[in-house]
C-alpha cells in the first residue's frame, strides 16, 4: 500500500499537503516504469524555476531514463517556492526514496481543495487494473 498521507494524480504524481504548502513528487510505480526492461537508469530531471505559477495538470518538468521520457504534471495549483536541488546530482534518490527525500518541488497553494485528486486506495486499484 502506498502512503495515504497524500493524494495522487492519474499520471502518477503525488501531492502531500501541509497547511497551504504542498510537496510534489512522482510515485515509485512511474519511476519503475521509466527504467524497466531496458536496464536504463534515470539520467535527467528537468525542474522549474522558483516563482513559476502552475495550474492543475500543467507540465512543470520532465524526467528521462536512457530510453524513456515522461512529462511531470502538476497535481495542484500554486507557485513554486522551492525546488529539490539534490535531485539534479543524485537522481537515484527518486528510486530509493520517492516518498520523502525524492520530493521534486514545493508549492504554495492558491487553491487548497484536493478533491480533483485520487486517494492512495483508488490509485492502487487503478494500477491493479492496468496490469
Amino acid at each position: 500500500m502506498r502512503p495515504d498521507d497524500r493524494k495522487y494524480l492519474e499520471t502518477h504524481e503525488w501531492a502531500k499537503v501541509t497547511g497551504d504548502i504542498a510537496l510534489i513528487g512522482l510515485t515509485d510505480f512511474a519511476i519503475h516504469e521509466l527504467c524497466s526492461g531496458n536496464e536504463g537508469d534515470l539520467v535527467y530531471c528537468d525542474l522549474p524555476e522558483t516563482g513559476r505559477t502552475l495550474e492543475v495538470g500543467e507540465t512543470f518538468g520532465e524526467i528521462e531514463s536512457v530510453k524513456a521520457v515522461a512529462d511531470l504534471s502538476s497535481p495542484v495549483e500554486g507557485e513554486v517556492i522551492e525546488v529539490n536541488e539534490a535531485i539534479e546530482d543524485h537522481l537515484e534518490i527518486l528510486s530509493s526514496d520517492p516518498w520523502e527525500q525524492g520530493w521534486m518541488v514545493k508549492i504554495k497553494l492558491t487553491k487548497k481543495s484536493m478533491d480533483h485528486l485520487i486517494d492512495a486506495e483508488t490509485y492502487e486499484s487503478m494500477l491493479a487494473k492496468q496490469s
Binding site: G40, D41, E64, S65, V66
Partner: peptide, 10 residues
C-alpha cells in the same frame, strides 16, 4: 559487452 548507456548521458 553491454554498455553503460546511463553514463553516456550523465
Amino acid at each position: 559487452g553491454r554498455l553503460d548507456e546511463g553514463r553516456a548521458v550523465k
